[in-house]
Amino acid sequence: MTYYNLALFALALGGLYCWRELQASKLREGALLERLDKLSKEKRTLPAVPGHLNPHFLFNALNTIRYFVRTNPASARGLLLDLSLVLQSALRKDGQVSLRDELESGRGYLRLEGARLGPRLEIVDTISESDLDQLIETHILSHLLESLVKGVAERPNGGVIHLDFRNRRLILEADGHASLPSEVVKTLGPNLQIAREETTRFEWSLEQT
């Protein structure tokens, strides 16, 4: 009798434990699903900026390189490398990449535009080579630079583009009026500050990653 009672008790205890575990796991699953749902919603409000290549830029760059092939082959070779950096960057998957990599293709882009626009485009680049391992969203930098170059090129006498990186903030400033695609503005949200006067100034504060 005692054994029988004991066995029954143990069984009941075991059942109770299993039920609790089941409930708990259900709860955990629910929480997980909820979190996933929240994450995906967050993702929907932060659209990725797709890689892009302005065809006008591409054909103008090819035309410029063609001129240098004839007049200055060494420059032409350099510009072809710059073009391949720009293409690599445009073909990068959406996501994150090191500031160093994005800056390398961004500088290539600026050299190509500099070759095309001549003395009308001046670049002042004071970004030091340290502290560039930080990850940033892909394609954003190319959008920022493209809009600044456009703003400068619209001015008959051209202008200067400044590049700086201080206190985890990438600071880009140029003469002229530069406008950004809305998806870039949306993606960076409060991390991008825009100031427009005689110049256009973008301050992109890079989040801790």
């Binding site: 103008n60 035309n63 410029t64 063609r66 001129y67 240098f68 004839r70 007049t71 070759a115 095309r116 626009l117 001549g118 009308r120 090129a153």
Partner: peptide
């Protein structure tokens, strides 16, 4: 043309 390389190339 506002781009010098483009002008030179066409002239050539």
């Amino acid at each position: 043309d506002d781009e010098s390389p483009a002008r030179e190339e066409l002239e050539f």
